[in-house]
Design a protein around this nucleic acid. Sequence first.
DNA 1: AAACGCGCCTGCGGGC
DNA 2: TGCCCGCAGGCGCGTT
Length: 275
Amino acid sequence: MPELPEVETIKRSLEALIVNRRIVDVEVLETRLRVPVRENDFPRWIIGHRIARISRKAKYLIWELKNSAAVVIHLGMSGRLVYVNEPLPLEKHTHVIFHLDNSRQIRFRDPRRFGLIEVVAPNRLKSYQRFRQLGAEPLTDAFSADHFSPLCQRSQRSIKNLLMDAGLVVGIGNIYANEILFKAGVHPLRRGSELTEGQARRIVHAAKKVLTRAIEKGGTTLNDFRDGRGEPGFFQIELAVYERDGQECKKCGTLIEKAVSSGRSTYYCPACQRL
DNA sequence: AAACGCGCCTGCGGGC
DNA sequence: TGCCCGCAGGCGCGTT
């Protein structure tokens, strides 16, 4: 569920809390994440080192340490990072606990275990495998109609599928893909090769708009997160189509429809988004 | 070679 | 009431 805006929100809220803190211990309670947690990497590169900065790449969160090593975290579907002020009881599915030098903790909790935590040795981030095949960051100039339109043109896949392909553009999952295409007025099942130039431009524009707006909204709900209880305010953004099948389109009143595409639920207004 | 399908995993909601 | 089934989804990998 955490897509780009949620990861960006977490990044920003964590910055004030853990940048310049030293990681004094890492407790691994469960190694079986999507990628097994390599416990041995922690004492070697992480424990005893200070966090210099936090960055985000696609849906990955990166803690860069002063020794130039890094912790890479992906939240998968159900991952959460909980900042803990006091010795609160362990919540179920807490897999990894980072102990900081101010006696606070960052707890990684992930019921479905689709997330991952990996240590990258000093100065190896540039060659880190998982970052090699990533496409454009949607909120940078690298993601433009000039860039995206030709990629679509040469594909028979649906535009929704293309938007969710991290090899082309990163950070967009099922929820935002649906919302972006509604805003752009493009049917999610339209083939890339059948997109007009104008549609491609509208999609790129809508993507930037929707993601930026979602980040702004996420940024308003940092308080719960800071306390380490409650959810970090995901999905407070008003969704136009996602999970709204059978309800009226907010633009024209037509009933929102649901289809399944590549095994994923797809929502659209049949009037605003013609195939 | 592009594109699709599956499996990983748990919680939850609907149906019976 | 309680159980079971299906769905939710990012990502990597296997298959066609």
